[in-house]
Design a protein around this nucleic acid. Structure first.
Length: 448
DNA sequence: TCTGGGGTCCTAGGACCC
DNA sequence: TCTGGGGTCCTAGGACCC
């Protein structure tokens, strides 16, 4: 059948209660006991509950407070040691790479392997032996961590296979048996069907994948949208040709923080934004990348969440610009009642080299009357976010710089959005000034 | 003490261009 | 003067995943 491999050549591995398993491995006293790893503060949530803790009802994404209520005295609540998880994860991923050059790591504890690309015996017996052997090697190499393996003709079938037989499971779905496995399952067990989609489907009587199979493409698209609808239509028929892709470029980098108590003080909010921007920028620089869009995420005391973003003419990776753009975005948000969470992100990423090329031919700015002399060497240090004065245009701030020119937006902290102009870097009528005074955002807010 | 932190993808509307 | 599509970019929000 079109869209389905004729053999079960994709493997999915999911490590069982991974964080908790590493803790139990490293602390023998925790073995056999309920262990909950996650945020331990007042607003923490559970990352991983050991199977012993799951027996009491502890679950991932549950508030830690709720997990404490459910679990008996003696349950270990741990904050998590991500370096240890990361090292253990690498050991496992290296084992997978011995199976095939095509390994797609989805997260620290999950990966797909294209077994067909690894030249394996893809008979059911061969695959079963391979899966069994892999599980044994993982357990030995990690010192006790176990995983569940699913093998099928597509990523979806492999993932469903590992899901159906965990923990410590192994399920091979032979080519041709897909629909028999799929159709009795609740739609919620399909990857991509969450609470919202589940409710919508349920409302029209679709509870199992078999029910889904009976619906027309048109109905499904009308119900959940074009992309999701056609995806579900195909999934119900086990049509999934997504390849196993080893490395994917990151598309965004972000950092966010939930505060133990809601913040109201503007100075404190600004400090937090700076701290978040520093973290994001450190990672951008480590990866040698930069991005054009800066996003501020904002969660109010009542959990309503909004984002504000601004796309800059050129990619940025410096703390100053990211901080200032994010701080500016904060100015437009009503903070009444307090802030539960702040986040700062940078997206539209490009590598440094690509970034320069991009800026060269895609800078959406018309060069102004004074022809910038690109050949002229940069005689002065300009950095995005810097305040400047211009003889004709008045006060502004540096939006982007590079390639012998500087882009200025004439929009000071106390002035409304103004025009954008690009000048040669040595334009004498452009004069650096003092850093902006962000206390001005209060004025900005009351005026809007 | 309800509801973390890091992501991806999709949708929809408006601006703008051809 | 009115009416028109298509395409891209940007912004905001939502669903989902681990």
């Amino acid at each position: 059948m079109q869209g389905m491999r004729s053999e079960a050549g994709v493997l999915h591995l999911d490590l069982d209660a991974f964080f908790a398993a590493v803790e139990q491995r490293d602390k023998p006293s925790l073995r056999g006991k309920p262990v909950v790893v996650g945020g331990t503060g007042g607003r923490g949530v559970v990352s991983t509950a050991s199977y012993e803790a799951r027996a009491y009802g502890a679950r991932s994404a549950m508030s830690t407070a709720e997990a404490r209520r459910r679990c008996p005295p003696g349950t270990a609540f741990l904050g998590g040691r991500f370096a240890a998880y990361s090292v253990t994860s690498r050991v496992v991923m290296d084992l997978l790479r011995e199976l095939s050059p095509l390994v797609e790591q989805v997260s620290v504890d999950e990966a797909y392997v294209d077994l067909a690309a690894g030249g394996h015996d893809l008979s059911v017996e061969g695959l079963t032996a391979l899966g069994r052997d892999l599980k044994v090697r993982i357990h030995a190499a990690t010192g006790g961590v176990r995983g569940s393996v699913g093998i099928g003709s597509s990523k979806t079938m492999a993932k469903i296979g590992s899901e159906l037989d965990k923990p410590d499971g192994l399920l091979v779905v032979p080519a041709g048996a897909e629909l028999d496995v799929l159709h009795p399952l609740p739609v919620r067990s399909l990857p991509g069907v969450g609470p919202a989609t589940g409710d919508r489907l349920s409302a029209v009587g679709v509870r199992t994948v078999g029910d889904l199979h009976e619906r027309s493409l048109t109905d499904l698209v009308a119900l959940v949208g074009q992309a999701h609808g056609s995806g579900l239509f195909r999934l119900a028929r086990a049509l999934d040709e997504r390849p196993v892709v080893p490395e994917r470029e990151a598309k965004s980098v972000s950092a966010e923080r939930t505060y133990a108590t809601d913040l109201t003080d503007l100075g404190r909010l600004q400090n937090e934004i700076r701290w978040l921007a520093d973290r994001v920028v450190a990672r951008l620089q480590k990866e040698g990348t930069a991005g054009r869009t800066v996003t501020l995420k904002f969660r109010r005391y009542d959990f309503t969440t909004l984002t504000r973003s601004q796309t800059l003419p050129q990619p940025v990776d410096d703390a100053r610009t990211v901080t200032e753009v994010a701080t500016r975005l904060l100015g437009g948000i009503d903070r009444t009642g307090g802030v539960r969470l702040l986040g700062v992100g940078v997206s539209g990423l490009a590598t440094y080299v690509q970034g320069d090329l991009f800026a060269e031919d895609a800078a959406p700015l018309v060069l102004e009357d004074e022809e910038p002399d690109v050949a002229e060497p940069e005689s002065r240090t300009w950095y995005p976010g810097q305040d400047v004065a211009h003889a004709d245009m008045g006060a502004g701030w540096v939006w982007g710089s590079g390639l012998g020119r500087v882009t200025v937006r004439f929009e000071g902290p106390r002035t409304p959005p103004g025009p954008v102009r690009t000048y040669a870097v040595d334009d004498p009528s452009l004069v650096p000034a003092e850093p902006p005074d962000w206390r001005g955002t209060e004025d900005q807010k009351s005026r809007s």
